[in-house]
Design a protein around this nucleic acid. Sequence first.
DNA 1: TCCCGATTTGACCAAAAGGTCAAAGCGACG
DNA 2: CGTCGCTTTGACCTTTTGGTCAAATCGGGA
Lengths: 203, 203
Amino acid sequence: MTETGPSRIQSEKRAAILGAALEVFAAEGFRGATLDRIAGEAGLSKPNLLYYFPSKEEVHEALLSGLLDLWLAPLRRIDPDGEPMAELLGYVRRKLALSRSHPRESRLFANEILQGAPRIGPTLSGALRDLVEEKAQAIAAWAETGAIAPVDPRHLIISVWALTQHYADFDVQVRAVLGRDDPLDGAEAHLEMLFERLLAPRA
Amino acid sequence: MTETGPSRIQSEKRAAILGAALEVFAAEGFRGATLDRIAGEAGLSKPNLLYYFPSKEEVHEALLSGLLDLWLAPLRRIDPDGEPMAELLGYVRRKLALSRSHPRESRLFANEILQGAPRIGPTLSGALRDLVEEKAQAIAAWAETGAIAPVDPRHLIISVWALTQHYADFDVQVRAVLGRDDPLDGAEAHLEMLFERLLAPRA
DNA sequence: TCCCGATTTGACCAAAAGGTCAAAGCGACG
DNA sequence: CGTCGCTTTGACCTTTTGGTCAAATCGGGA
């Protein structure tokens, strides 16, 4: 009964495929991506790719599952018992860091949402909604005590998503406007200031 | 030499095609969209569509050209000689209104940028960049006089884009979280407040 | 070294998709 | 009401693409 995990070559090839697929799906969307291109970028042939994943759909699925977890981790780490301002600014910082470190994941997610979330729709109105509701409660409580200025907690969260993800998803446009090497540098200071001003308790 | 414009039927069919194409390109991206679907949605056959436009590329091109103009109109209307706070809040309001009235255009644009702006790339680093630079100057001047709080003008503009477009592009996600009929209603108040707090002159 | 299962590949298939074309249909104007 | 040009269509072509399969190759343990 010795459970044999996937062989070394299995994990390596599967990882290579997922890496290439992330690149291609993020850049072209699901329908625009081709197995040939993914296989080529992963350094193997199409039939070989199909040996590791039964279909294009399943490759995509493998990427998407788990993505939401990664994506929501920063929000999840908000601690209702922490110092409100620090918690929220920390959230913004973590989310922006994620955009910088995982731009392809961001674009993969953006593609899925843009297309109407055909594959993760249910999760959105399930787990996602629940998590947002939970954290919104905490934020609302903070606002009530006056620890932060009054805000609509849900729209606040949406604002964090919009502002941080934009730098990854609209990278080319941001670069065209800023013409800088790493636009994320300036973004960090800007966003920190933005949320400080937005949330600073009123006198 | 009586110039005969396009016949009534010509304009009608071309408009129908562009409408359908906007819908499909926005939802599926360029490569994901098919001529059959566009033709079907426009109420004609594929060869008939090809009678009005020489190729899929040209349909897409027709949509994209002019889109940037529409998209940048709100920014263009910022008046350097106007009242700073009113100008900027007016800009936000106009941009959000555009997201509400033209969600498909927003998604078409998002798709193009996500895919690396293969078709409007040059315009981005040309006309777009120039316009942003021009308006950034005005905003910087306002900040200098203390009429608004100090901000990085370019990142401010990017923030407006991110926040307003997000409501159109990520519509399904926003709806999943808010569960409301029209999320844009709450958004307007929220964004107005956000930018007021961000830009209100310091004491 | 030999063997057997894991891995890889070239050839192939069917469906989808962009595009062409000649012929048929239609409509406005003389 | 007949004609001529604008419009529409079905049939067809080629390329691309997701996927299959049998055969070949590889690689590590006995």
